[in-house]
Simulated assay, not measured.
Amino acid sequence: MSKREFSKVSPAVWRSGRFTGLECSAAQVLYLYFLTCEHQNSAGCFRLPDGYACSDLRWEPAMYTEARERLVRADLITFDPATEEIYIDRWFRHNAPMNEKHSVGTRRIIEAIESDVVREKVEHEFLVADEIRTAKIMPPPNTPFHTAGLSNSRLVKGGR
């Protein structure tokens, strides 16, 4: 179970062609469940046995597996049945690491992903997001403002 108190869900989900193109409202509900359930973590990837999800949603297993397969086909999630791990595709577009501590914690979660296929996908998307984060917050090396841990906005504003 996650210690997260909240999850970011972009209002753009309602305009997403992948999401609105689902021909089943159960699949849409399941996607929102995956985004916000207590199993969710900062890597957007978690192990979720079918029985847990069916219990949470009060669904029959057939309904759950069909909705999950629709999400896989719509390229909204990646699922490995061998490890029961689910990854919310493009998770880091909306939930990129906010700082170095967040990044380190997310890396630890990613390293614990059992599925090679899922872990490789999560690692790739995470590295792209983390590179963008570090490029935005750190001045170029060998400049007078290159100070580990201070973001450009804090340097400009003169904060500590």
Score class of each variant (00 low, 15 high):
Met1Leu: 10
Ser2Gly: 06
Arg4Ile: 06
Ser7Asp: 14
Ser10Asp: 12
Pro11His: 13
Pro11Arg: 13
Ala12Tyr: 14
Val13Gly: 03
Val13Asp: 01
Arg15Asp: 15
Gly17Glu: 13
Gly17Asn: 11
Arg18Leu: 07
Arg18Gly: 09
Phe19His: 03
Gly21Glu: 00
Gly21Lys: 03
Gly21Val: 02
Leu22Val: 00
Cys24Gln: 09
Cys24Thr: 03
Ser25Tyr: 08
Ala27Lys: 00
Gln28Arg: 13
Val29Leu: 14
Val29Cys: 09
Leu30His: 04
Leu32Tyr: 06
Tyr33Thr: 00
Phe34Val: 08
Leu35Gly: 02
Cys37Val: 02
Glu38Thr: 12
Asn41Glu: 05
Asn41Cys: 08
Asn41Pro: 10
Ser42Gly: 10
Ser42Lys: 13
Ala43Glu: 04
Ala43Ser: 15
Gly44Asn: 01
Cys45Gly: 06
Cys45Asn: 07
Cys45Tyr: 02
Arg47Leu: 02
Gly51Leu: 11
Tyr52Ile: 14
Cys54Trp: 08
Ser55Pro: 03
Arg58Pro: 01
Arg58Gly: 13
Trp59Lys: 08
Trp59Cys: 09
Pro61Gly: 04
Ala62Pro: 05
Met63Thr: 12
Tyr64Arg: 07
Tyr64Phe: 12
Tyr64Trp: 09
Tyr64Pro: 03
Glu66Val: 08
Ala67His: 07
Glu69Cys: 01
Glu69His: 12
Arg70Cys: 08
Arg70Ala: 11
Arg73Met: 08
Ala74Leu: 05
Ala74Ser: 10
Asp75Gln: 15
Phe79Val: 04
Asp80Val: 11
Pro81Cys: 05
Pro81His: 06
Pro81Ser: 14
Thr83Arg: 01
Glu84Arg: 14
Glu84Ser: 15
Glu85Pro: 04
Ile86Asn: 11
Tyr87Gly: 04
Asp89Leu: 12
Asp89Gln: 15
Trp91Val: 02
Trp91Thr: 09
Phe92Tyr: 08
Phe92Trp: 11
Phe92Glu: 09
Phe92Ala: 10
Arg93Pro: 00
Arg93Thr: 07
His94Ala: 12
Asn95Leu: 03
Ala96His: 10
Pro97Cys: 09
Met98Val: 14
Glu100Leu: 10
Glu100Asp: 12
His102Met: 06
Arg107Cys: 05
Ile109Phe: 09
Ile110His: 05
Asp116Phe: 12
Asp116Pro: 08
Val117Met: 11
Val118Phe: 06
Arg119Asp: 11
Arg119Gly: 07
Glu120Arg: 12
Lys121Arg: 10
Lys121Tyr: 05
Glu123Val: 13
His124Val: 03
His124Cys: 11
His124Phe: 07
Glu125Ile: 00
Glu125Leu: 03
Phe126Tyr: 15
Phe126Ile: 05
Phe126Gln: 12
Phe126Ala: 11
Leu127Met: 08
Val128Met: 11
Asp130Ser: 08
Ile132Leu: 10
Ala135Pro: 00
Lys136Gln: 11
Ile137Ser: 06
Met138Trp: 02
Met138Lys: 08
Met138Gly: 04
Pro140Glu: 15
Thr143Tyr: 06
Phe145Ala: 12
Thr147Pro: 03
Ala148Gln: 13
Gly149Cys: 06
Leu150Trp: 05
Asn152Ser: 10
Ser153Pro: 00
Arg154Asn: 07
Arg154Ile: 04
Val156Arg: 15
Lys157Glu: 13
Lys157Met: 09
Arg160Asn: 14
